[in-house]
Nucleic acid binder design. Structure first.
Lengths: 321, 321
DNA sequence: ATGAAAGCGCTAACAA
DNA sequence: TTGTTAGCGCTTTCAT
């Protein structure tokens, strides 16, 4: 391997002058700089990143942490990666099986193997995670009110109310079923609040069919099986993501349920699944959320001032509702 | 930061003994080992990964390289990451805009910042890329016959013939349109061969509507626009991926085309899009492909013998054809 | 079985 | 403006 010492020798200067010429830090005369640069080019020198990382205690790598893969994770990753690339940061991805695995990643962070952390979803409590903010920026897609961890969250409460009100206006006090994510999540709690408010206002609407599927994989299928076997009469179902809604609808259709004739359906997040399958949904502008989150990391790291883009979600009415 | 020197001091031994005790390399007495380990635990010592990486000239990180994001990329990433995790390897993701960006990643590889390379798709020629195989294993999802780069490829020629024959058996010599990927790709070439063979055998079948969309994003929409404006009569369309087929079908349906009544449709790869939208397709067992590719990397790195799992693709007939 | 010492390649404090 | 030197934390010869 050709080192900076080789370059210095070839250019007839010292290691430090060569270093200064190459990194652009500190004083170097034009003459020396030129000598060093040509020598470097001639020898085909590239700085050892490993040495740089070790020396500088920073890797220019961001950890992207999710619990499992599902399509929205891929979308977030795409946006995040493409923004960070422009600033010379790499993205290392982790799927965490449990709190211990997540703790390992936090240790990597403490040891500077990662310069920032982008949580799609967490496993440990925020109070545990936020201790690590002293090592660099931590952001999360999940809603949290934690002061140290940045969350570009969208309040699901008014959004959910909007869906419910839309259904009421269009169809009256029909029975609405709900497919929700992890009940421990703040977004889920916000939705539950909206549901209970709505039920108070519209006592004739039965909103009691509520099922929870914290993992998106197969959630739609499981929910549909549940739906098909319940004795309750349900006229509409709201699902927490388009992906899950798509699988839900697909399974129901195979079982002969006509949508929207027999059952109205609402998704959430306006992904390709919603688009392609013509599912009514709410666009929460995932790309902008990812941008806010990623910019927050960059601004902290590069000491720039961060300004958040305000997101105004939009109801998208399509064929299913 | 607590270093190995601190541990050594606390344990009353030398740095090297401490290192041996912790890494498990070389001779250490039970007594010393115990002393070191308790000291390490008491001090909350964790080895500096950055120093280890620098010293060992290896990061235990694999580069995962794609051109753009589309759902199958996410799936591959999921499988790849989860396997590598078990062996203690991380995965860093890159989306390459052009050959220069890809070349940068290859440089990272040369400098040992990456221990292996998983190409979903490449930008430079394989003859350029394969020079880097001396730095570690390189595998690719794309079909290549390059000797140095491992490709767990599936021959699309017999698969495509299978689809064409199925259509012929079911519907006779109808006109078939083709939505293909990059014409420069080997998979596309294999498909074109199958098409020309088929046309020779079935001269009444018009197979001349062939369109190419190298990027999956929006490909389905563009193809549908093309389809809607062509003067040719097309009875069936085969699309190179379920994702693109899904968007294609979605757009056509919005424009009042009935599928399968007016148009038969065939996808490829059996993804969730195909499943949820009931599109006939071929299952190429992406998970197993990813497994072969990933295992190949691991086996090279860990000096184990690699055995490939043979994949037998399966036609999946659904609603659209 | 253990310790001393060298060195991976780079950067930065300090001296000149 | 440049060179000297130290040191980041670890592993690994080479002696002992």
């Amino acid at each position: 391997m050709v080192t900076i010492f080789d370059v210095a020798k070839a250019a007839g200067v010292s290691k430090s002058t060569a270093s200064r010429a190459i990194s652009g830090q500190g004083y170097v005369s034009q003459a020396s700089k030129a000598k060093v640069l040509t020598a470097a080019a001639k020898l085909g020198y590239t700085p050892s990143i490993l040495a740089r990382q070790f020396r500088g205690q920073s890797t220019k790598n961001i950890g992207f942490i999710a619990r499992t893969y599902y399509p929205a994770v891929g979308e977030l990753l795409k946006y995040c990666t493409n923004i960070l690339k422009k600033y010379g940061y790499g993205v290392t991805i982790y799927f965490t099986k449990d709190t211990a695995e997540e703790a390992n990643i936090l240790e990597l962070f403490r040891l500077h193997a990662l310069d920032g952390l982008f949580f799609v979803a967490n496993r440990n409590n925020w109070s545990y995670i936020d201790r690590y903010t002293e090592y660099g920026p931590i952001v999360t897609w999940r809603r949290t009110d934690n002061q140290k961890v940045y969350s570009s969250y969208i309040d699901h409460y008014p959004l959910y109310k909007q869906i419910l009100d839309y259904i009421y206006t269009e169809y009256g006090e029909i029975n609405i079923g709900h497919v929700l994510n992890d009940p421990a999540k703040n977004n889920t709690k916000a939705r539950l609040r909206a549901i209970s408010e709505y039920t108070k206002l519209h006592p004739n609407s039965d909103n009691s069919w509520i099922v929870y599927y914290p993992e998106q994989e197969n959630a739609g299928q499981q929910a549909s099986l549940n739906y098909l076997t319940t004795k309750q009469t349900i006229d509409a179902v709201i699902v927490y993501s388009d992906y899950v809604a798509a699988e839900f609808m697909s399974t129901l259709r195979v079982n002969g349920i006509n949508i929207p004739e027999e059952l109205k359906l609402f998704g959430f997040d306006n992904s390709d699944f919603g688009k392609f399958m013509n599912i009514s949904t709410i666009d929460t502008y995932l790309a902008i959320q990812a941008k806010n989150l990623t910019n927050r990391i960059i601004c902290t790291l590069e000491h720039e001032t961060f300004k958040e883009i305000t997101i105004v979600p939009k109801v998208v009415i399509r064929q299913t509702c």
